[in-house]
Structures are given as structure tokens and as C-alpha cells.
Amino acid sequence: MKELKIHRAESLGKATHDSPLQDQLVRFYEGEAVASIDRTKEFSALERIEDIEYFELAGPRRKLFFNPKDVTVGIVTCGGLCPGLNDVIRALTFCSLESYGVKRVLGFKYGYEGLVAKYYHYPIELTTDNTDEIHEKGGTILKSSRGRQDEDEIINTLVHYGVNILFTIGGDGTQRGSRDIVNKLKERNIPIAVVGIPKTIDNDISLIQRSFGFETAVESTWDIITNAHNEARAYRNGVGLVKLMGRESGWIAASAALANSAVNFCLVPEVPFDLHGPNGFLEVLEKRLRRKEHAVVVV
């Protein structure tokens, strides 16, 4: 059988250091793969099984490139806010210090701005003490900003503070920035690892089970939908229209509709529908109003 096409995370070099997790009850991942879902065609349309592309599964490895006790970890949050940002910062801090025993963890403030010297955003050292309760707070303790910054300036700051591994928490723009930083690191032959942590409240990333912030978003819809239902019932032919986040995906809307039986119609981008016509949405809505005199629509 031909070798599968597995997209693997790039490595800085040969991993020679034993993981500190080997003394713990931890499952190690050594090149396992998960199938990539190609949205442009069904698997049944593929001519050969070898045409399926795979991605390497994330998880701890037995051997590491860096010696943890010499490592400085950097963390930065960029772009829009999302529930759970502080949870991620806390988890990275605790895991780095407690599980891997790294030398220190630095939090860079105000997104990629905090990695450019001219803005004078000095990093803060993150410890298990000053991050212990941050998961109970909204927003991000590291602040955020939008916009691209000069990759050379960012790398100069990383080198100045001796950062070996940089975790970038953010969405599309942030991860494009991570890619550009990696490309510039290659040009300058500097061995710094960049790990992108995808941030989206919409849960619209393939091949992951659930993005952080999604559950909080769905939970927050309960009162809004319930209030819309109460107001719709208070008027003859009242219609409660609730528009939820999702950009180009309907995960939040669909999950909220499943969780709250007050929803009568759920419209999502993934499922096309006609607005007008004999089987259009407006006709179905009118039938509902004639029968029950109210309706709740989630979009």
C-alpha cells in the first residue's frame, strides 16, 4: 500500500530530550493521523484511497527538541475577544510550568504590538499564582489589538527576551501573522517554535471537535431566545427574530435551536432555502402563524 499523504507539523530539528511527562500517566502521540474532510468532493468520488489527505494529530511527544528547563515560553492574544481566552492563558501557564518545568512564561500585551519595541508594551511574567483565578474573568488579561506588525521587529523582541516557543492565540489574521513570523524565522535561521492556537467562537474549524468559547456562546443564547418567545406570544402573529453570531457558519444557531424548544425555525448558511414561492419560508411561517399566532426564528 502506498504511503498516506500526512501533513505533519514542521520540526526545528531532531528531538533528543526526554519529555518530563514520561513519568506521568500520559498518552503520547507519535505520528497518528486523522482524515482531512475535503468539502469540494465526497470521499466516494475519489479514485484512490491514497488521494485522501491526512493531518497529524496533536498531542504530547516522548522526545522534545528543546530542553524544558532552559525554555522561555511566550504567549500573545490577538484580534477580537472570545470566551475562554483567559482559560487558555492559564492552561498554557500551568502546563508549561507545572508539567514541563520550563524556566519562565512571558505574556506579551496588546497582541502583536506587544512584540514590537517601539510601542513599549513590556511583557509580564506569568506564574501559577497570578493566573490562578483568571479563568473566572472575561476578556484577556494580556489585552489585545488588531493589525499586522513587522516580522523582523517581532523576532528581535523574541530574541531579546530569549523566547523559545511562542503561542499565538487568535483567528485568521493572527494565524496568517504566525505563518509570516515562521517564514521570517526560517530566513534568519533562528530556532524559535511558533504554535498557533485557533480562536473562533463560531466552531467553524475543520478537524477539531470544538473550539473554545463556543459552548459559552450557545449557553448565552438561552435567555435571549426565551425573551423573544415571550414577546412574540404577547402579540397576535408576533414573530421573534433572533440573529446569532456565526459569520458563514450556523453552528451556534443550530446548537441553540436544539437546546431551546421555543425555536420554531432555524436558518443557517449550510442549508439553502427559498424565501418566496409555494414551499418558501414565508409561506411556511404564515401557516405557523395561522395555527399558533406566534413564532420564533433563529438566524
Rank of each mutant, 00 (worst) to 15 (best):
Y119A: 04
A295D: 07
A254M: 15
T16W: 02
E53G: 09
L185S: 07
K5Y: 12
K118D: 09
R210L: 13
I154D: 09
K186N: 11
T226W: 08
L267M: 10
N279W: 01
D70T: 11
E248Y: 14
D202I: 05
I181S: 03
E53N: 11
T93A: 08
G138E: 03
G170T: 03
Y100L: 01
N203G: 02
N86G: 01
F108Y: 08
T16D: 11
G107P: 10
L207G: 01
A257Y: 11
A253M: 10
D70M: 02
H229T: 09
A193W: 00
E32N: 01
Y120E: 15
V34P: 00
D87A: 06
D51A: 02
A91W: 02
M245R: 03
R148D: 12
L25V: 03
S261P: 13
F94I: 12
N230V: 09
Q24R: 11
T131Q: 10
V34L: 11
S249V: 00
E133F: 10
F167R: 03
I197T: 03
P272K: 10
L126Y: 11
G162C: 02
V242Q: 14
S11H: 06
E56C: 02
G240F: 13
G31P: 04
K243R: 11
L25E: 13
K243G: 06
E98D: 15
E136R: 09
Y122Q: 14
L275P: 00
A228M: 12
I181P: 04
R146Y: 02
D180Y: 06
A58G: 12
D18A: 09
D180Q: 11
R8F: 07
V271H: 06
P269A: 09
I141F: 06
H229S: 15
F28M: 02
Q209E: 15
T77K: 05
L46H: 06
Y110G: 01
R146P: 00
K184A: 12
E47Y: 02
L158T: 09
K186E: 13
P272A: 06
E53P: 05
R290P: 00
G79C: 09
L85V: 00
G107E: 00
V297W: 06
C95R: 13
V34W: 05
H17D: 04
L81G: 13
D204A: 11
S261R: 12
L81E: 10
E3T: 14
L46G: 01
Y120C: 10
R233M: 12
G280P: 02
K41H: 09
L57F: 05
L282R: 04
S11Y: 08
P20K: 00
R146W: 01
L258A: 15
I155H: 00
V73D: 06
L241N: 07
H276R: 08
